[in-house]
Design a protein around this nucleic acid. Structure first.
Lengths: 128, 128
DNA sequence: AATGACGGTTTACACTCGTAATCGATAAGT
DNA sequence: ACTTATCGATTACGAGTGTAAACCGTCATT
């Protein structure tokens, strides 16, 4: 017992690719998942199977029997995952101050005019 | 040759804690580093030694002889590291669009009034 | 000169991750 | 019913990580 309780934490890079496929559409069978990621990541079916089992163990993916096989669905919302990961980064690297992240991106020229415009729009919306 | 050349990639969580100590002040001896992180992370000296060697191997930390011992300094700038990690997150989770990260943080209520004000200020500066 | 403290190097070991082969049960076709 | 194609489950295995003990050389002290 006392699983890592997972939820969203502890999803590795490779596992994340599988999650993205499921977030994009679900439920999916293992082969469906492979169809969507094996090409791109150059994986074989067994690899996908392993990743799916690990995700199920972690509680990040849920299964639903469909005849002889399983259909897989995300057990956590992408927005939750993304939110937690973002917060982790901000905490770890920016002392929990999101504005510092923003400053970093700005300084890095990682923001183009489009980004700036979008952010300004969001800011205006938040203001109201 | 062809070192992993590392630079900033491949620094693990535990190693990162050591890097932070060195970014905060350097050069430091191994015991100095331990003084700054062992309490907090509940580590013993050997652990710090291991992490320092690994960081030296990765090229993330440089050494400088000081009598019989070594003094350690970061070999990579914190801003570079932070920038690369930020970019990795944005690429991985937000399709490379920083504005999406920003939107996420906003939606998550991770931004308080202070953050918003700071970001607005940065935006105005970028505009000029 | 012998001993102990200090610091770096080597070795260790369990766990996770990436990647996959193999095994075993079952459904489907012949 | 028997064989084969599917699936999920079990096992594998090398690299990286967290955490640390053991070993070794050297400077300082007795």
């Amino acid at each position: 017992m006392s699983r890592k309780q997972a939820s969203s934490a502890g999803i590795s890079e490779a596992e994340h690719a599988v999650m993205e496929a499921l977030w994009d559409q679900s439920p999916l069978s293992a082969s469906d998942v492979c169809d969507r990621v094996c090409r791109e990541r150059d994986w074989s079916m067994p690899t996908v199977k392993t990743l799916l089992s690990r995700l199920v163990n972690k509680g990040a993916v849920s299964t639903e029997p469909d005849g002889r096989r399983f259909l897989y669905s995300p057990a956590i919302a992408r927005s939750d995952y993304v939110g937690q990961e973002s917060k982790r980064l901000v905490d770890r690297l920016f002392g929990g101050r999101p504005a510092s992240l923003f400053a970093q991106l700005a300084e890095n020229e990682a923001l183009d005019d489009n980004d700036l415009a979008e952010i300004e729009k969001l800011l205006r919306e938040l203001r109201s």
